[in-house]
């Protein structure tokens, strides 16, 4: 008899247990990024920039050089790294508060410059680490601890659509919005991540993959309900799909 491992965790993860809540999809996206790093054989020259938010510890979960940026500033930190070390592969991992509220200037300008870095953007429509406050991507009517009566246009304006905003910037080489609810979605996200990193490796410009994700704890649901809520609500506001692809066939 011989035993073959058909699915096992990628090498680019450090093996450290994730600090996320049960069912939180941060971990799924982490694993997909690491799988792509393995596949592209870039572990030895990759540097990651973790954000402030639930994924503040992300730099410990990957077996690559890493740091934590100030809240929202990861694209600027990554820019400094990439300009200093042109052969490195630099990626930022950011949540919706980090990227779409406090870090709006940094992400727009990094994208517009065509900075040769990759950003993985987790949009779960809520602040996780600080305990469930309103995010720039919180849906209208959605209740959080800082919009306890539901988000209103009058008071808080509209949910920020990051991909729709960024697609007009000249420096974008790859831009896609995905989900990781089903095995099929997960395979699509993996493919998007591979293309995003390939855009960087080919020097084509800035790449970003927005992943709509669940936050069961702060949404007040069990993990299964959260995936259903995402399908019915988050996906209605934020259309999944490909926005920019200058990579073409990356095989």
């Amino acid at each position: 008899m011989s035993v073959l491992t058909t699915f096992k965790p990628p090498k680019a993860l450090s093996g450290k247990e994730f600090t996320y809540c049960p069912g939180c999809q941060h971990g799924t996206v982490h694993r997909l990024i690491a799988e792509v790093i393995d596949e592209l054989q870039i572990q030895g020259r990759t540097i990651m920039v973790a954000p402030v938010g639930c994924s503040v510890f992300a730099y410990e979960f990957f077996d690559v050089d890493g740091t934590v940026a100030a809240h929202g500033r990861a694209p600027a930190v990554a820019t400094g790294m990439k300009r200093a070390l042109k052969d490195s592969v630099v990626f930022t991992y950011q949540g919706d508060g980090d990227l779409a509220a406090i870090g709006t200037a940094e992400i727009v300008h990094a994208a517009n410059r065509g900075e040769k870095i990759t950003t993985i953007f987790i949009n779960n429509a809520i602040y996780g680490m600080t305990g469930g406050q309103m995010a720039p991507t919180t849906l209208l009517g959605m209740k959080t601890s800082t919009c306890p009566y539901g988000r209103t246009v009058e008071n808080d304006g509209y949910p920020v659509h990051v991909c729709e905003l960024l697609k007009e910037t000249g420096g974008i080489a790859y831009l896609e919005r995905t989900t990781v609810n089903t095995p099929q979605d997960i395979r699509k996200t993996r493919k998007a991540l591979r293309k995003a990193f390939t855009a960087q490796l080919k020097g084509l410009g800035f790449s970003l993959v927005e992943v709509l994700s669940t936050c069961p704890t702060n949404w007040g649901m069990n993990p299964i309900e959260a995936t259903e809520w995402l399908e019915e609500n988050l996906k209605r506001e934020f259309k999944v799909g490909l926005f920019v692809d200058k990579v073409g066939d990356d095989q």
Binding site: A69, A76, T79, M81, R83, A84, A105, H109
Partner: peptide, 25 residues
């Protein structure tokens, strides 16, 4: 390498990133 940043907030964080690589910045 010279880069005019979008703000001083970004500039100092670019310094952070570049300094992480051990280069003079």
């Amino acid at each position: 390498s010279f880069l005019q940043s979008e703000s001083e907030v970004s500039a100092v964080n670019m310094i952070y990133g570049a300094a992480c690589t051990g280069r003079r910045v």
